[in-house]
Nucleic acid binder design. Structure first.
Lengths: 267, 267
DNA sequence: TAAGATTTGTTCGTATGTATC
DNA sequence: GGATACATACGAACAAATCTT
């Protein structure tokens, strides 16, 4: 029914809109629909919450079936670009691409890339100190207090391996919180993404199964010192502290990754 | 036909599979289908090119209609996780999540974040020197020759603003190529992503409209020196050169961004 | 509370395009 | 070229959610 000229040919209009004017577009229709709507969003400079055409309007506009249009909308929905609601006044609206969703999509890519601890720390070693230095003297007292409350979550010694792991996940939250305070969305994203990968490693691969008192205790000292430097606005000192923090953390994780590998081999 | 009895209620089986056991899952069915198939890929440890169940099998397995299943598959397809082929022997296969696709998805996130030149260079300033240092003495002669051929693309002075812009895009390719040679997938991705953003800025926002001879000439000298240091395996020198390169490039782009802003205001 | 209106969500049957043999 | 197997697309009907009156 698509190409056949049974009745009128609404396809002509659709073809122009979707970019299938003459030379065939190898991509499937739903994907072309999704791209067309993305362009529409850019052209009309639509902002968060703005309304998009209804399903019925899109069906008429593109001259395609409901299923095809819906597949296209689903693509945009999973990318976080739109949200849909049912009922009167419902429809599709420009959504917010949250950092979490973007990180999840990016994790799909790295799933097949198997990163090593060394790879991640090659970036952390230079980015985290830069982040720390850039925040010195720029945080409100409320923000500093929040950092202190995060540190407080793991200031008590852990009594079990499981508690130890939970504490390490919490200590990664310290870095994520720091990243959120940065005005630099790119830096915040990359640092937050690394914290997320390390959290996954900790939870799924149980990199921290062999409890390591040393890492936790050193980490806490570094983080407390760091907060003080940030409060006093000492950028260079914050940078130095964070650099040292990264170096010891990397060394300890490297040693433990080796342990984990040996354990796999042993089984 | 997989889990369900003769013809009772196929929904029961589907509910378990898809994770709607008891408390309602607010997510729509297609999205749950997509997640279920992702889990299936992880559980069976499917690799690139491995075959997934056919549409008909999935319909029977989940007890859902064609349309719903197709919407789910489309989600995975746009994320690059699967590819589908028509015809006999066709079907859905585990795809490769290319770096380009991952960068495109990530660009959706930053579309609403408007990054400044300063934001991007805060990362470039520390990451590019680290990348350069890590590659010193580790590149083959073929790789070094490829870098030289990239530089050769813009060694001739440009005769028009348009040519100037093309040359700058090419010079960003130098950094992308360098990133690809890195064994660190995370570092390569972040550096490549920044190069892409800057390319977009150059092409769309025409940040380089005011031709700037200085940037190009200095850039070429730095890049030639850098290749030499890489060939000789001088890691620290490579780091220093790249750091200087970044500092001058940032200063020049900052000045031009200001110009561009003034131009927008003027109109 | 209840009924009706509006919009997305889901299903089914069918037809078409495409690649392989 | 024809047969086959598979994804792709269409359209009508019904279900569910949600707002208004």
């Amino acid at each position: 029914m698509a190409e056949s000229p049974t009745s009128g040919t609404p396809q002509d209009a659709a073809s122009q809109i979707v970019g299938d004017a003459c030379g065939r577009d190898r991509r499937s229709r739903p994907i072309r629909v999704a791209d067309a709507i993305k362009e529409l969003m850019v052209e009309r400079n639509l902002q968060r919450g703005d309304r998009l055409p209804s399903e019925a309007e899109l069906i008429a506009h593109f001259g395609m079936s409901k299923g095809t249009i819906r597949e296209g909308m689903r693509i945009l929905e999973t990318q976080g670009l739109i949200e849909t609601r049912t009922g009167p006044g419902g429809g599709s609206f420009v959504g917010e691409v949250t950092a979490d969703r973007a990180k999840a999509l990016l994790a799909n890519y790295f799933y097949f890339q198997d990163l090593s601890v060394a790879d991640i720390y090659q970036l952390r070693r230079v980015l985290e100190p830069e982040l720390a230095a850039s925040l010195a003297g720029r945080l409100t007292e409320a923000q500093l207090a929040r950092l202190e409350s995060v540190v407080a979550q793991y200031s008590e010694p852990a009594r079990s391996a499981e508690e130890e792991r939970d504490q390490h996940v919490a200590s990664l939250a310290f870095h994520r919180t720091l990243a959120e305070f940065s005005g630099n969305a790119l830096l915040a994203f990359v640092v937050g993404f690394m914290a997320r990968i390390l959290t996954d490693l900790t939870v799924y691969r149980r990199l921290y199964d062999p409890p390591n008192r040393e890492l936790r205790e050193k980490g806490i000292v570094y983080q407390i010192d760091l907060i003080e430097a940030l409060r006093k606005g000492e950028a260079e000192r914050a940078r130095v502290i964070m650099r040292a923090h990264m170096e010891t953390a990397e060394a300890l994780m490297q040693a433990q990754e080796a342990q984990v590998l040996r354990r796999f081999i042993a089984e």
